[in-house]
Simulated assay, not measured.
Amino acid sequence: MHSIERHVDPGTYRKVVGRFATGVAIVTTRVGDVDHAMTINSFTSVSLEPLLVLFCAEKVSRFHDAVLEAGTWGVSVLPASMEDASRFFAHRGRPMNGQFTRWAHYRGETGVALFEGAIATVECETTAVHDGGDHSIVVGGVSALDMPSEAAPLIYHEGAYKSL
């Protein structure tokens, strides 16, 4: 693989890719009896046959190692009303104990925590992990789906939360 020469300013790069509006989700996993969660906007459908999705996890996050160890994970796509949850689970170093108590949640088929207020949930088993620079690209086979609520989605665009 060829090394990519950098001719682009990282600050400009962030601004340019920030123009791509994304949905916001919280990805969850469980190792032993400990729940782990992280806010993401790098979630996408990959394949219909087989059913595959992916998200990207920053390698230095504690979630990264937990999700790779667990091998199963869930994604709760957030409605505009759950911006507070998105902000909370995006905060590095927050206490692990009781982190889900502020939001109604349930256990999915894989045992991961999923948010009742989510507009969509997807449960997955990891099928591949690829290097993505300072992130890992985690690909999962879909094992369960749901649409717990009907609401406008939470959107992230140009460094700010927005809604439709």
Score class of each variant (00 low, 15 high):
Gly132Val: 05
Asp9Thr: 03
Val75Trp: 00
Ser136Tyr: 02
Gly159Arg: 07
Val24Ser: 05
Arg102Gly: 04
Gly93Ile: 04
Gly71Asn: 06
Val67Ala: 14
Pro10Glu: 14
Ala57Leu: 00
Tyr13Thr: 14
Gly98Val: 01
Val46Phe: 08
Pro95Phe: 06
Ser45Thr: 13
Ser3Phe: 03
Val27Trp: 00
Thr44Val: 09
Thr72Ser: 10
Gly132Tyr: 11
Gly32Leu: 02
Phe115Ser: 03
Arg94Asn: 13
Gly117Pro: 05
Arg14Thr: 00
Leu145Val: 08
Gly32Ala: 09
Phe89Asn: 11
Val75Phe: 00
His36Ala: 03
Leu145Gln: 09
Tyr156Arg: 05
Arg87Pro: 05
Ile26Ser: 02
Asp84Ile: 10
Ser81Asn: 11
Gly93Ala: 08
Ala151Pro: 12
Val53Arg: 11
Ala160Arg: 15
Thr28Gln: 12
His64Ala: 03
Phe89Cys: 06
Tyr13His: 12
Ala151Tyr: 06
Gly71Cys: 04
Thr28Ile: 04
Asp84Phe: 05
Leu52Cys: 06
Pro79Val: 00
Ala25Asn: 06
Gly132Ser: 08
Val138Leu: 08
Thr72Lys: 09
Leu68Ala: 13
Leu54Tyr: 00
Val122Ile: 13
Arg19Ile: 04
Ala57Thr: 07
Thr110Asn: 13
Thr101Val: 12
Ala21Phe: 00
